[in-house]
Design a protein around this nucleic acid. Structure first.
Lengths: 216, 216
DNA sequence: GTCTATAGCAGGATAGAC
DNA sequence: GTCTATCCTGCTATAGAC
């Protein structure tokens, strides 16, 4: 009975499993590695979750989903304070919710890597990700965007705009090392902030097509 | 000696390995699966490539790299025909090189999935991908963009613009199923073309910041 | 709920015949 | 170059003591 650690074994397993799955992907991580990191016994995974696959699904259900909802909430909260948010505000709120919102750097990295994993190699968690998170988030984003520029943006345009923004959010996180490498030693200062600024300006102009002013 | 198939075993293994690695990722594919698909013996992988890891690297060297160079070439060729290409032409050439250029749909899907794999879970192939393909391509793109709008775009801006375009190219391929799901049964017609149009317009506006005209 | 011990198996790799 | 046969490691999963 080595278990005098503050957190319960089950929770520690979820934490370590999430970190490892995000870092290496499902198949590259062994149950031994997870239980080793969680400092518990090999058998604990089967006891608490049944098997490795079910552990993975629980990571999504109990760690990833709530966090995704926090991000969505943060996005909506920062919009609720305004009555008729401009497109600029909408895009900025979204970018901030993802890139500097309620998540720590480490959490955000885990979170986005996991979703990229599901996008590129879908498992049983895929449907959850799409239906319970992606679709609602895109729904919010699209309706907010359309409200901000009611004139001549049809549904498909709005969807594609939303996807383009998500593309940058995901990619700027995933390719951070590459971006750093290419930009060279120029950084040191807050690359993160400059990325957000760029993302907001780029996508705002992308959406607006030069037709609306950013109010910048 | 079952080998009366047109292609040499070594080549068939490379083909099938690439398809499987792209589809499922390195760790999710077994050597048995590869040799099964290539209709050859299990031992053939070790005979021809040494081990699984070296096979994976050969897939990059002998299949992925040349294809990446074809795409880059296609991008540059379509620009060479013009003397002072506008930013719109540059972006459109890039998008077309990737999304409807020299690659078939299947090839393109493989190609982009493999690179996303390396981005999200780097292996020994990562450096090759960055140094021999990514950096040169970004270099071309950046210098073309800066030539097209010499006024006030600094190096970092150009880099971030280039990354934003690449983000959309990669993501629009990866998330194609999601996009289809969200857009619903609206498609049928050529989604591909509409995606390219959107990508070009979005990123052109994103780059130009409303300051340049697209000439559209 | 946590542990030890082990069953049972799949995967990578090799030796050696052809 | 290709095949068969086999080794052996490392994995998931389970049974059962505590």
């Amino acid at each position: 009975m080595k278990n005098h650690r503050n957190e319960h074994t089950r929770e520690r397993i979820l934490d370590e499993a999430e970190a490892l799955f995000a870092l290496k992907g499902y198949h590259a991580v062994s149950v031994r590695e997870i239980t080793g990191a969680a400092q518990c016994n090999l058998a604990a995974v089967n006891y608490h979750f049944g098997n490795k696959q079910k552990l993975y699904l629980e990571v999504y259900r109990q760690r990833w989903l709530p966090r995704a909802e926090r991000v969505h909430q943060s996005f909506q909260d920062s919009l609720k304070s305004e009555q008729a948010p401009s497109a600029g505000t909408v895009v900025q709120s979204l970018a901030r919710a993802f890139l500097e919102g309620p998540l720590s750097d480490e959490e955000r990295n885990r979170h986005l890597r996991l979703v990229v994993g599901e996008l590129s190699q879908p498992t049983e968690a895929f449907d959850q990700v799409i239906e319970r998170v992606f679709r609602p988030l895109l729904g919010s984003l699209i309706s907010d965007l359309r409200a901000a520029m009611p004139a001549d943006m049809d549904q498909e345009q709005a969807v594609l705009n939303a996807f383009s923004i998500m593309a940058m959010v995901l990619y700027f996180n995933l390719a951070r090392p590459v971006i750093k490498a290419v930009l060279g030693a120029t950084d040191g200062s807050d690359l993160q902030t400059r990325l957000i600024d760029h993302l907001v300006e780029f996508s705002l102009n992308g959406i607006a097509g030069g037709k609306w002013e950013t109010g910048k």
